[in-house]
Design a protein around this nucleic acid. Sequence first.
RNA 1: GCGCCCAUAGCUCAGUGGUAGAGCGUUUGCAUGACACGCAAAAGGCCUGAGGUUCGAUCCCUCAUGGGCGCACCA
Length: 695
Amino acid sequence: MLSEFDKPYNPKEHEDKIYKLWEESGFFNPDNLPNKKGEHFTIALPPPNVTGSLHMGHALNATIQDILIRKKRMESYQTLWLPGTDHAGIATQNVVERDLKKQGISRHDLGREKFLEKVWEWKEKYGDIILDQLKKMGASCDWSRTRFTMDTEYQEAVKIAFLHYQKKGWIYQGERVISWCARCRTSLSDLELEYQEEKGKLWFIKYPLAEAPTQGRSDDFVVVATTRPETMLGDSAVAVNPKDKRYKNLIGKKIILPIKNHEIPIVSDRRIEMDFGTGAVKITPAHDMLDEQIAITHKLPAIQIINEKGRMTKEAGEDFDGLKILEAREKVVKKLEELGLIEKIEDYTHNIAKCYRCGTTVEPLRSKQWFLKMSELAQLAMRDVKNKKVKFHPKKWEKIYLKWLSGVKDWCISRQIWWGHKIPIDGVDDVLDTWFSSALWPFATLGWPRAKSKGSDLEKYYPTQVLSTARDIINLWVARMVFSGVEFLGVSPFSDVIIHATILAKDGRRMSKSLGTGVNPMDLINKYGADATRFGLIWQAMGGQDIHWSEEHVVAGKKFCNKIWNAARFVLKQCQPSLKSDFGSQKKSDFFPGGKTSADKKILAQLKKTQKQVDKLIDKYEFGQALHILYDFFWHDFCDVYLEESKKNPNPEVLARVLKESLKLLHPFMPFITEHIWSKLPGVKNLLIIEEWAL
RNA sequence: GCGCCCAUAGCUCAGUGGUAGAGCGUUUGCAUGACACGCAAAAGGCCUGAGGUUCGAUCCCUCAUGGGCGCACCA
């Protein structure tokens, strides 16, 4: 029996087999669990994008959720971890478009129907890769309930949600300046922008006064500063602060817009900063959000000079029609120079908004879009956090959440792409923002709106208990799930939000593929095994603090696996000859089985203390702390001290007891090796995955 | 610009109002009857700087410096 117990533990030989054993047992599905407490414990897996492959953040998050799920399952909760994937509108469409481009085909060549067929094909082929990777991590999700945000039932849920909002009068169409990605050809919400610092220039342009008080002197001009000279072609005013003494007597006068050579007014507005640039600002209502606001106040016309393809329009003037933005910029600057209207050019570093999916510079454009009124929904989302129905761990993230909600603008929910949920209004071709459907995840996956009856999944598993996710989607996703849950079901979709650490490269910067600082969890699994990888992740996950990734801890995890393995070999060897200790027969009441010597008593007391601490720490989501304590107990107290003692005077019953209880405690963290060793214990009948947790 | 977080051993990080710990690394022994992915020892830190509270601070407060992050963007 010990023959397959080779000296070093080799995870590759066991992990796939063990995972299969679990899947075949059916215990990932809460309906099949033998000991049911009657209480439910649900986690909805944050659905990874179908385009994605597992990164370190996913791996950490999956481990955290799996620890909670496995512990609760062992505590006899009816435990559901519901997995699935997100259709990830823009991201997926981009990937498929890129694929087609290799064959020289654009989505427009195919047309909407054909293109969507291609996307579905792609999804069927690659969409489950990330879920398979989660299996490699040991994630004990109920795969029989796997959902996709474009499932037929899910589409129905999205439609019902939209119509509900519409009925309430919260959906409206508006024409306003929004962020536009000319590459993706769609609008983007504020949260879908990423700002990048760029070195640019600040052009100081002289706008001549219509009625020059003096001829040829410097005060015949108003100088405006801009980073985007080409937008002057769409100017409809120059604005100054009413308190600005320099311009006081110019307010209300006319000024000539160069190149276009027509008069525009000088207006005053408090929103103009006096200290920046020259204090005089060119107003381009169709291509800047603040300018648009100012234009509304002063009833200025909005002239669209850039179209949705990122090209200049006819409105920009004959010379510019059809030019790309940067070409137009060059040409405008050249003309102004010829006219002697450039006062100076300064270097200027500023943040530029980029599309979070493709990195293209975002263009503020006036466009007709659909909006969801946020005022009341934001109140709901804030209420449940303020009254502690939803708690963040660590708590500091509540601030971020509340702050965003308190100033939130109406949500632009329409996107001009093809892959997604079509807006359910006849004659509208736009699709909904991906996050509109993600917001329904915790209940749309459980059958809402259809199944509300007794015994339905929705009734049993909603609300879920824990949401574990990354901090960058607190507003994008968490807030929207909270108000959706409250709006549609009257209860927040979860009570505890774990914001896990962000895994950074060793230098403290984000992992980057191009810099070669990225780490692939699958490589770690291949090299060290899934248990060691999980160990390495959790070992470093202390208090939600960002992790400067270092692989040594995975190495430590591998060594720890080996230690557990060899300790088990020793214990089995000690227990084998006497066969007195039947590992399967011990009852709760036998907690101090034959604890005669002081060493026996000591290790049993240490075990009990460790059990209590680990139990409490997991419940407090202090996974790193829990693992450190467990490690310390098992390696030092048990192996270094007690096992050594046992060589002189072995007590098989105590050895068996401590090993057994340790395996249980370790199982949520390192499920494979613990399950495997468990299966080797004589007299053991059940899988460890459903063994009773604590004493 | 506003806000948040971090600064402890060579590296990655724990920790406590009474003068510090882990993992990895390093040094020295040891093939001891589970494990060399090991065992036994050891070296290594005025706990970023300056003030303050306190009998006493690495831990509490203030400021500074360095690093990270979030929000808002100023044309």
